[in-house]
Design a protein around this nucleic acid. Structure first.
Lengths: 343, 343
DNA sequence: TACAACGATGATAGCGCTATCATGGTAGCG
DNA sequence: CGCTACCATGATAGCGCTATCATCGTTGTA
């Protein structure tokens, strides 16, 4: 009884048709069917059409897992970001996705929640998926993770900030950006300036901007002061930041927020409190989110080209994957000051 | 010469160590090494430790592609959304991701740009990756795509709205939500109400809300009017919507916007124009984004539990994958009216 | 003490595809 | 007309892993 089914070892993964069945229906060998799909120019037009018809007829869906195993590479690009809550990373992802998808790559998205151990774990998983390249936000990794990235023999793109990258690097100089805004505030005549950041132990790019900010203030002979919020950037937190500044540093003339979410939250809160901006207090942000340009007064901020970062990063990776030597390993996308009326 | 290298057929995909090498070092068979990783409870503790040590020593990274091929299933969950520009989908994705990742699943993200053909293509690709389940935003697909989903023999979760789903369904009743807001506006005494949407041919959930809105107005003996914007929801478009309403329907008392981005854009624009909200014009939105609750007056809107949708959807899919029969195939997450001062 | 039950491990055979080499046919060339 | 060059196609052999069945002790129970 148990032997009645002669092929007990049969363990087809699914009832999906396979390339072999397509090939049989089309009257060609499996490898020709494979070529009809992957390198159509190497197959006679008529043959190819016959194969495609057979695929259509059977409702064939290529098993990409098998293809990847056989060819030892997949059309996956691993993208690792620290957070999805932050519009900044979303926009970078958009830039990456549109470019990669149009080149036929599929994005594998990982979220570290600002945890470098988690990042290491994700890198391992993605390498296990034979991804063609990795894109990760930031230059900070655990030593083991950095080693893994350096030795993994595929393009590694680190985006957002510039510095000592493992391989490719697209971003901007956050230190300079923070300094630029501080200079702007000083030019406007503000002397009592406070920097407000959120969870800066995690958000080290905000800390880099703060360092740039400090340097400028110190050069001008001013004492920098910092308020650090517990919660990550949000309108909520920005409002709270404003309250805290008014409480701890009542003589403050201008607040330099670590990002636009905080700054806009503070600006809207100031309106509720009946404060004049910038008359009573000036407010500046960072990022150049659309939101900040729709409030009154418009937010003074630093425009960072986020979607562009994604697009350029994807472009460079694609170039590299296509085999062309990439000339520039580091790419500074720059930034510019957007002067609103809030300062 | 060409034969000197006896094993010319050698084509190792990479120089990564394999399970076989790990097994050899640990002095066990490959299958035991595999079990040490995947079903540790079926391996003697000492043996398992020896295997894990060997893995550590060699820097072994499991080839998940090979594993998926052999086992005919992957730890991938396909997630297909129409847009990444819209905060709503981002939040759903966050809910999905946190839940799926903690259950050991990896998300494959696809973006259709509101194109059902593109969706079909993505479904094919993801099925080709042997994903364990598919989550897609919305119930509208091409017939071929729907057929593919129905026949693919794994959990299919359709989120956002409720209706005739292929398999599982988590969402809310957009028709009712649109009606609820219309009722609110009528209760407030507004009679000249305009609905403003953006690209509603694509955003058919906005159209469903509009239909609910119309029904309520018609029941009250009022004539609904609609303004449709070309651009997708954004603060920018909302401002433009307000201008257009004031131009085309100067006697309008209240505007029911298709979403909070539009509504907030209009609200901020009204402030710039010196209009009183709701004195000169009342404004309502949909979604309950945090932004709308930080402007003055606070936006009246409908709170949709977006991250919850993602979390519940992921939970149901995981239950199904774990083998337990899912009792409820449809799950209404509901909504509630958030009364701000803008109406 | 015999035998079923179970726990730990191994041998074998693929999963569905593609890299590699091989083959037969046709065109180009002196 | 013989030769190389190239094009279209096929045969073979894996990619690295796991499903399945088999094996061999060790326990527990009658």
């Amino acid at each position: 009884m148990s032997k009645s089914n002669g092929r007990a070892r049969q363990r087809r993964g699914s009832d999906q048709p396979t390339l072999a069945e397509v090939a049989e229906l089309a009257g060609v060998s499996p490898i020709t069917a494979s070529r009809a799909l992957n390198t159509p120019e190497r197959v006679n037009d008529a043959t190819r059409q016959r194969v495609l018809d057979a695929m259509d007829h059977l409702g064939y869906v290529p098993n990409l897992v098998a293809g990847s195993l056989a060819s030892a590479r997949s059309k996956f690009i691993a993208v690792i970001v620290p957070s999805l809550a932050n519009a900044v990373f979303i926009e970078v992802i958009k830039g990456l996705q549109s470019t990669f998808e149009s080149a036929g790559y599929q994005i594998l998205l990982g979220n570290t929640d600002y945890d470098v151990e988690r990042e290491h774990q994700l890198v391992r998983t993605f390498l296990g998926w034979s991804c063609s390249a990795l894109v990760t936000a930031g230059l900070r990794h655990t030593p083991a993770c950095r080693e893994l990235l350096a030795g993994c023999d595929r393009p590694v793109m680190e985006v957002m900030e510039l510095g000592e990258a493992v391989d490719l690097n697209v971003g901007l100089d956050h230190h300079a950006a923070g300094g630029r805004m501080a200079s702007h505030l000083l030019e406007r005549g503000y002397r009592h300036v406070v920097y407000v950041g959120a969870r800066m132990a995690d958000d080290y790019r905000a800390r880099m901007r703060y360092e740039g900010h400090c340097k400028v203030l110190e050069t001008a002979g001013l004492e920098p002061s910092l308020i650090e919020l517990e919660r990550l950037g949000s309108l909520e937190a920005g409002a709270q930041g404003l309250d805290q500044v008014r409480n701890d540093h009542p003589d403050t003339e201008a607040i330099h927020f670590a990002n636009d979410d905080l700054a806009t939250g503070a600006l809207l809160h100031a309106q509720r409190l009946g404060l004049r901006v910038p008359g009573d207090i000036a407010i500046a942000g960072f990022n150049g989110l659309s939101l900040g340009q729709h409030v009154t007064p418009r937010l003074t901020t630093i425009q960072s080209p986020r979607e562009t970062i994604g697009r350029i990063a994807a472009g460079e990776v694609i170039k590299r994957l296509a085999g062309s030597r990439v000339n520039r390993r580091r790419h500074d996308v720059g930034f510019h000051l957007l002067e609103g009326e809030s300062t």
